[in-house]
């Protein structure tokens, strides 16, 4: 069997096995009166179909918040990384405060954010930005300052201007680091958007996202619907990651060894 077929077949088999284990756990491991805690896959699917318009709309709202926050994080972190790459003194001055933002949990930041920009999309985007910004800025800065010394000397020898050195050497050399940060941020962004939505989401104007919906289902003890919400969040994360991986592959596969293989 070809390795390409195996790469499709193996995850499919694993998935089927996990579904079987799930059913087995539901019917054989849990007592009848507690079975509602672990609804079987069929019940989750039915809950999804029943609430599909609501859930898909919520997923779209979450995706918007995640995309907006993630996009802002990409743009602003790049500018910040350029600033940080200027000197070790700039880095020493700013890193502790960047770390402080990263270390502050979203549920603590959320109420502040709601007060500042109001509940809903704006807050979700700002909080997603807060969680995605740090890995992006740290990785991109590292890339910008880790350029091969010989290449720097080559540019120095040919009297390259500061701008030429930055855009013809440092920025392309930092791309693999940037994409590493992007991949981490792409994993965090949907999670951040959902957590932000739980804490700062709003149903006004149908603006509630998956997090907001999860809070409602939780209060109603709709466990199958909660599972469906979790699955949809997971799917959103996969889509985000796949998009970033594809982008990284397109940008790097022709020259960077880590992206040489096509089985990303």
């Amino acid at each position: 069997m070809s390795s390409k077929a195996l790469k499709v077949l193996l995850p499919a088999l694993t998935g089927a096995l996990l579904l079987a284990l799930w059913y087995a756990a539901h019917f054989f491991l849990i007592s009848e009166e507690r079975r509602f805690l672990l609804p079987p896959p069929g019940a989750v699917w039915h809950a999804f179909i029943k609430d599909a318009p609501l859930l898909l709309h919520a997923a779209w709202n979450t995706a918007q918040g995640a995309l907006l926050g993630f996009g802002l994080a990409v743009v602003i972190s790049f500018g910040f990384a350029l600033l940080l790459s200027l000197s070790p003194l700039v880095r020493a001055s700013l890193y502790p405060f960047l770390t402080a933002v990263q270390l502050t949990p979203l549920p603590i930041l959320a109420p502040i954010c709601v007060i500042w920009v109001g509940a809903g999309l704006a807050s979700v985007a700002v909080l997603t930005f807060a969680i995605a910004f740090f890995p992006l800025v740290v990785n991109t800065t590292q890339g910008l300052i880790s350029v091969d010394r010989n290449l720097l000397e080559l540019f120095q020898l040919y009297r390259a201007s500061r701008w030429q050195q930055l855009f013809l050497l440092r920025v392309p050399a930092a791309l693999p680091y940037f994409f590493t940060g992007l991949r981490i941020a792409a994993t965090l962004a949907p999670i951040g958007a959902v957590v932000a939505d739980m804490n700062a989401g709003s149903s006004a104007g149908d603006g509630g996202g998956l997090g907001f919906q999860a809070v409602i289902y939780s209060s109603q003890l709709k466990i199958p619907a909660l599972f469906a919400t979790a699955a949809l969040t997971c799917l959103l994360g996969f889509i985000f990651n796949a998009a970033i991986l594809t982008l990284a592959w397109l940008a790097l596969h022709h020259w960077h060894d880590s992206y040489e293989r096509t089985d990303h």
């Binding site: 290449l151 080559l154 960077h256």
Partner: peptide, 9 residues
């Protein structure tokens, strides 16, 4: 240089 110092991209 000792190394080819080519820009890999």
């Amino acid at each position: 240089f000792q190394e080819p110092t080519l820009l890999p991209w």
